[in-house]
Design a protein around this nucleic acid. Sequence first.
DNA 1: TCAAGATGATAATACGTATTATCATCTTGA
DNA 2: TCAAGATGATAATACGTATTATCATCTTGA
Lengths: 339, 339
Amino acid sequence: MTGPRRRVTQRDIARLSDVSQATVSLVLNNRLDGGVRIAEATRQRVLDAIRETGYVADPVARRMADQYNRIIGVFTYEPVFPSGARDFFHPFLLGLEEQAERLGCDLLLLTSAPVVDGRRRMFADGSRIRLADGCVLLGQEVDRDDLTRLVAEGVPFVSVGRRDDAGGPVPYVGADYPAATAALVRRAAELGHRSLAYVGRGEGPESYADRLRGFHAAAEEAGAAARRLPGAGSEALDAALADGVTALFLEEPADVPAVTAWAAARGLGVPADLSLVALGDPTRPVSIDLDVTGFTIPRREMGRQALDVFFALLKEAETDTQRLLTCEQHDGATLGPVL
Amino acid sequence: MTGPRRRVTQRDIARLSDVSQATVSLVLNNRLDGGVRIAEATRQRVLDAIRETGYVADPVARRMADQYNRIIGVFTYEPVFPSGARDFFHPFLLGLEEQAERLGCDLLLLTSAPVVDGRRRMFADGSRIRLADGCVLLGQEVDRDDLTRLVAEGVPFVSVGRRDDAGGPVPYVGADYPAATAALVRRAAELGHRSLAYVGRGEGPESYADRLRGFHAAAEEAGAAARRLPGAGSEALDAALADGVTALFLEEPADVPAVTAWAAARGLGVPADLSLVALGDPTRPVSIDLDVTGFTIPRREMGRQALDVFFALLKEAETDTQRLLTCEQHDGATLGPVL
DNA sequence: TCAAGATGATAATACGTATTATCATCTTGA
DNA sequence: TCAAGATGATAATACGTATTATCATCTTGA
């Protein structure tokens, strides 16, 4: 008595409650406009049948009829979630899931397998995004072409993390890296640091550029010397130290162990001889035994608000579609006064 | 002149190449069966139009015409993916995603079902599973009631990891823990070990029970003494050691650091004084500096094959719906001969 | 008593694709 | 010359939902 279980459809509900399919749809969507009316008794009969059968509208058919299906694609760009980055991205996902549950929508994984040169192009296939009402973008770097096309096609989407314009403004919920970085620079200046170094790329992903921008702006304002070291290599650090740098601002906190190892090798005390500041959370898993001063990215909250912005866009409601959230400053033990 | 551009449809192609929509579809799908034929010239005209316009079939409409919506729910039981377990579960997800891409379907996260006492019940909300064609189950432990209901309702589903019957056979793609464990026991016996200890629960999740079963069976066959220690506590280990145990089989490889710390404290060399075997991969992130002998769970492949089984079930094709995959043995440096 | 308005429901249609049954035309062979 | 088969294409329909135009019946008020 099995056989491939057919989906329960509105026709089934209609038959059960002795009305037409149209009526079922109207009850489901609670349409009151257009002058449509359903008697309360009928409505109840339909709702009962729905409850009994556990009927849910087929999201595909809903999309077909050009409707919302409350499914949101989550597109992640990191090449197959490089194992290291998982921990970093997880809080974002948690925020998304949490808010999705609250808003009663579902998340579709658009992270699908490796495609062209290790990276995924969003439009590589026939645009499965269309299955969903739109999508949320996650990842340090996002393909510019994809972004441009999303904007051009008017697909509702939100980026987790600020993005530069792409043929139009990109809706995002980002972290206020410039402000968070600047605040730490000011703290350092107050503590007497006159020569600071930013360690990292400072370009490429917006999040890097934003940090560096905040760094330079605040340093200039504070009248402190500022430089950038491309990486945490020993030679570069040695040179900076010899040149009078007293505080290092790490773009990538996962570099902390490398820097402390170098400091230990040189017999430098932190923060006695050198201060250390972490600009965010590590994107690679590392064990750090120091209580590093720096800031924390409100990842979970970013995930949550991303969905809020998404729904506002979908409903075309008024809202701030480019949000920068404040990072929490962490007062650790690695930023000290210059002795 | 913007506005969301209308999609190019088969009707457009049909008009352009002066054929019917049906012909376009037939050309696209290259149907040769059913006695349908398209003249080569016509075919080329249609293909040209497709090329010119960049037409791609709307995935939504495709699925609409199909009996299935090609959406597969991924249900995970771990309480919102407890942070430690993420690493462990990720390879399964990768396998699922990879195969989903290959099979042209999408994964819907069903991880956000209402959380009742820290855990999710699948049917708590009644019907979200019905959004999808069926689902894949992921997690160490699966709710028995949910399982029973899935079987009873005939929802197509596959468990990643073997499951005991639940009012009927449960389709699964699991790891062959008994065989993998037994192989290691035999190796130990060959190396002269006569008294072995299994460290762990050995019950609860099927994966634990399976390991213990394989352990006991192989030990008996090899004529070696076998016992089980509930955990890796120092007292238990001391007692076992005092009692002549020369090899420990760890159900949970994340316990390796605890055991090696204990061994170091007792001045025991591994494998000189004591052999160590890891029965699988750590479910919690730990850093292990030893090259531990043991086996690896084919997680990615399990994810992949789970989707294969799922589709076979969906299409009611003949297939082995209860698969146990072979674990890869890893010949490390912690299982040595008894001196 | 009857017209106008209110009420309640449905038939018809659209969305874009896939497939099957059917049809028209051409070719072949005796 | 004609029937049978081959060839090439299409009309019709299905998939499951949403919506609009339409219709039938009931109510109301003068």
